[in-house]
Design a protein around this nucleic acid. Structure first.
Length: 287
DNA sequence: AAGAGGCCCTGATAGC
DNA sequence: TGCTATCAGGGCCTCT
């Protein structure tokens, strides 16, 4: 589900609500996510506080006060929910946690703070939690991935060198996290549409101008999507259950058989499967 | 070594 | 109503 913009939205709201707070209790209902959550997980988080909430690519990173890190990946269907404590009676201290948006099923991981709980929900369980012992280990993990589109490392020279003699199509490169990290199936289609590049075009045959457009529109589209609170096509919600609205700005994704929105273009949006992922494009203006 | 494809999992929807 | 098939925003692993 979530690509960089959606994860950024989650990270921002988490940052506002749990930074500086102490984890009072950790409980897990289902440890079998993409990777099994190890036995000591709860005790290693317990009574640590959140120094900072960060994001790299599609990963949320909780920096803890013991200089360790907890990485969260939302996979395809992961969401994080924030529950606030409602005090019913000041005298008896009676209280309850409530969120009208919290799904009934698939709530797997619970982190409790003072008056706040966050809950990790993930029907398909493609997401995971991972602990890093120190900054070095975390950096080694991150160094396995390509730069984010926003990074200065994602520049014309990098693209030209990377694409040299590469037969793979450009759509697959945009999804390849070792080349560029943070893009997913929606934004790959959108970026190629704005860049006027056919998704099946081989990387080695891209012009310099194509590369410049890819860099430019990756940044532009991701930034706009973040501003709009991400895209919600099925089930993406931020931590208080609100949908994003960037889906209203999609030019190609989910627009099969609709007319091309490029000014002056009479084309129709096509849907094709490229290595098993649905891909949307205009076969007239995307060359 | 690059590139294609299978697979992990549940839920929503379409078609019969 | 209930079956089956297909598809969904990700990414790792295996095979050629």
């Amino acid at each position: 589900m979530p690509e960089l913009p959606e994860v950024e939205v989650v990270k921002e709201s988490l940052s506002r609500t749990i930074t500086g707070k102490k984890i009072k209790k950790v409980s897990i209902k289902n440890r079998n996510l993409r990777y099994k959550i190890k036995k000591g997980f709860e005790t290693r988080l317990q009574s640590k506080s959140i120094k900072k909430v960060k994001r790299f690519s599609k990963y949320i990173i909780l920096a803890l006060n013991d200089e360790k890190f907890c990485l969260i990946h939302l996979g395809m269907s992961g969401t994080i929910h924030l529950l606030r404590k409602n005090i019913l009676n000041q005298k008896t201290n009676a209280s309850f946690y409530h969120s009208p948006y919290l799904p009934k099923k698939h709530n797997h991981v619970f982190l409790e703070f003072d008056n706040i709980k966050i809950i990790y929900n993930d029907p398909r369980r493609f997401g995971y939690f991972k602990l890093f012992e120190n900054k070095n280990n975390l950096e080694n993990f991150i160094n396995n991935y390509g730069p984010e589109p926003f990074s200065s490392k994602f520049n014309l020279n990098y693209l030209k060198k990377y694409f040299y003699k590469k037969k793979k199509n450009i759509k697959n490169f945009l999804l390849d996290q070792k080349f560029v990290s943070g893009l997913g199936n929606i934004y790959a289609s959108e970026i190629l549409f704005s860049s006027k590049i056919n998704p099946k075009k081989k990387a080695k045959s891209l012009s310099e101008n194509d590369c410049i457009n890819i860099i430019k529109y990756s940044r532009k589209i991701l930034n706009l999507a973040i501003k709009k609170g991400g895209s919600s096509i099925r089930d993406f919600k931020n931590i208080v259950g609100k949908n994003g609205s960037f889906q209203d700005n999609f030019k190609v994704y989910n627009r099969e058989n609709k007319s091309c929105l490029s000014p002056g273009c009479k084309g129709t949006i096509k849907k094709k499967f490229i290595t098993n992922r649905s891909t949307f494009f205009c076969n007239i203006c995307q060359k």
